[in-house]
């Protein structure tokens, strides 16, 4: 059976939404889905080597004043970091992370080497839309 495909437009660079994306990715991995992630504007900053899992460098999309409590709760519940979620999903299923070329440049990332090792390539918007057209599930976070 052909695996189901998920296409995720990942605009966010906020730790709460990235964590949610990680949880969804885990579910997709459990179901052996093929996942294409297109990292857009704010998202590309989170994938920069100097940001990644450094929660101090990431904002909260909602309730920014509750960030410390949020992060502490995640730790107490033994929840993985967003980078760990992404990494584990990549180990289990076919997950490709494509960084939007424009987004990368906005944050000073010209080359794949400027991003954490989860990133697979630098791409254009055409790749996102054609993957989106073929996907069984489309999400935009």
């Amino acid at each position: 059976m052909e695996p189901k495909k998920m296409c995720l437009g990942l605009f966010t660079g906020s730790v709460d939404k990235l964590t949610a994306a990680g949880v969804i990715l885990s579910g997709a991995a459990a179901l052996d889905m093929k996942v294409d992630i297109y990292v857009l504007l704010q998202g590309a900053r989170a994938f920069k080597k100097e940001v990644g899992d450094n929660a101090d460098a990431l904002a909260m999309a909602e309730n920014p004043d509750l960030k410390d409590e949020f992060m502490e709760s995640l730790r107490n519940l033994n929840v993985k970091t967003w980078v760990e979620f992404f990494r584990e999903a990549k180990e289990i299923t076919d997950v490709k992370v494509h960084i939007c070329g424009l987004a990368g440049k906005i944050w000073g990332g010209e080359n794949l080497d400027d991003f954490i090792d989860l990133a697979d390539d630098i791409c254009g918007i055409g790749a996102y839309l054609s993957s989106s057209e073929e996907a069984d599930i489309n999400l935009f976070i």
């Binding site: 949880v23 885990s26 579910g27 991995a29 459990a30 033994n78």
Partner: peptide, 14 residues
């Protein structure tokens, strides 16, 4: 038992 969702599902998958 030490993990919250999606931990158990992923543990089962592995």
């Amino acid at each position: 038992r030490g993990t919250a969702c999606p931990g158990p599902l992923l543990e089962a998958k592995k």
